[in-house]
Every structure is written in structure tokens, then in C-alpha cells.
Amino acid sequence: MQAKATNLRGRRGDSVVFSAVGFTLQSGRALVVTGPNGAGKSTLLRVLAGLLGADEGSFRLTDAAGIDLPVAREAHYLGHANAMKRELTVTENLSFWRNFLAADQPSGLSVDAAIDAVGLSGVGHLPFGYLSAGQKRRIALARLLVARRPLWLLDEPTAALDAKADSMFAGLVTAHLERGGMAIAATHQPLGLESVETLRLDGVHHAVDSEHGTWDDRSEVRA
């Protein structure tokens, strides 16, 4: 499986936040997107997830035979918000997403196993709203485990996590990559991952009506 972005340009309102972004990611690899606040990391992830239209360029996910796969169905998106309901218990939240995200048959870990995997055994019966910020983030990570999807799009995944949870997270991503998955994470902090590629957005904004095609290649992929 391969994820390939070509010449992506994204904008917020009238200002172009990144342009000419391209990368190729193979199965079992991770890409870390870095850059200062406002550099367009979140925008890039939302474009990749298909939640925002790209101004220009394309992002394609292809299987081994080169056939296009629908990104929305093959990708997990973890945004700033945890996508969990405060009123429902942790177990109810996770089993909902387990059913909802796996349209045909549930494919990932069971809900209890996922809660164990993020190190929170025993909180399943609590309403999600009772958890601390770090615990909420961990349960949001558990969502990635209850339905198996090859591409993980993670926006600041380790926000609010303590050091121990950071290494737990690195372990989860490493295990995901070893199974042939891919991960694209936007972050400020080092994620403790080995052998990742880095994409740096420099955060220089341009007005939309600038002349096209005169910008330098402002992003580069370093292995």
C-alpha cells in the first residue's frame, strides 16, 4: 500500500497556508509533519482526510496493485477533539465507533482489549466526561484500535499525555507500522518513533491572488 501526495496546496480563507507539498509513504512508514503554529499542519491533515478540499494537487492511496482506495474508508482521523460523548460511558463510546467505523464487520480489537492497550483498564464503566484530559486523549487513541484501518492521520496525538503515555503511544504506532500500516502525525513534540520521515511546513502565508507558480518549493521531505 502506498500513500502519495502531489503538489498539494491548502488554504484557510483567503490565505494559502502551504503549497507544493508532496510526499510518498510506503506501508510500514510514518511521516511526521512539523512546523510552527499556524503553519498549516492541521489543515494539511484535514485535506488528506478529505474533510477539506485541496486547492490544488491530489492525495491518493493505492494498494499493491496500484488501484485507488477510498481514503475516507481506509484512514483514521484523530483531530484536536476526541470525538467522544461526555454523557456516554467509555465502553459505549468505543463500541459505537467500533460498529460505526467498521461498516461491514468489526475488524479491530475488542473494546476491553483496546482500553487495556492504552493502559486504562477499569474505566470502561465511567462516563467519558468524568475522565481527565490525558485519560480522554488515551481513550481517543483507543478508538484507532477498535477498527482496523491502515492509514492513521493524527493531529497532535500526544497533547495532554504524560511521559509514560507518550511511550505507550509510540508503542501503539510502532505496532501499527509493523503490521504494514502507515501513520501521518502533525506534532510539536518528538514522538519517540524510530525511522520516520519528516515534512516541515515553514508557515509563510501568501495571499491567494498572488501569481501562481512563482513560489519556491517550500517543503521538503527528509528521510
Partner: peptide, 12 residues
Amino acid sequence: EDGSLDLILMQE
């Protein structure tokens, strides 16, 4: 507000 809508919108 809680981010669920993003996941709901990631559907055909």
C-alpha cells in the same frame, strides 16, 4: 463540537 462530525463526514 466534540469532533464526531469529522468522522461522520468521512463517509461516501
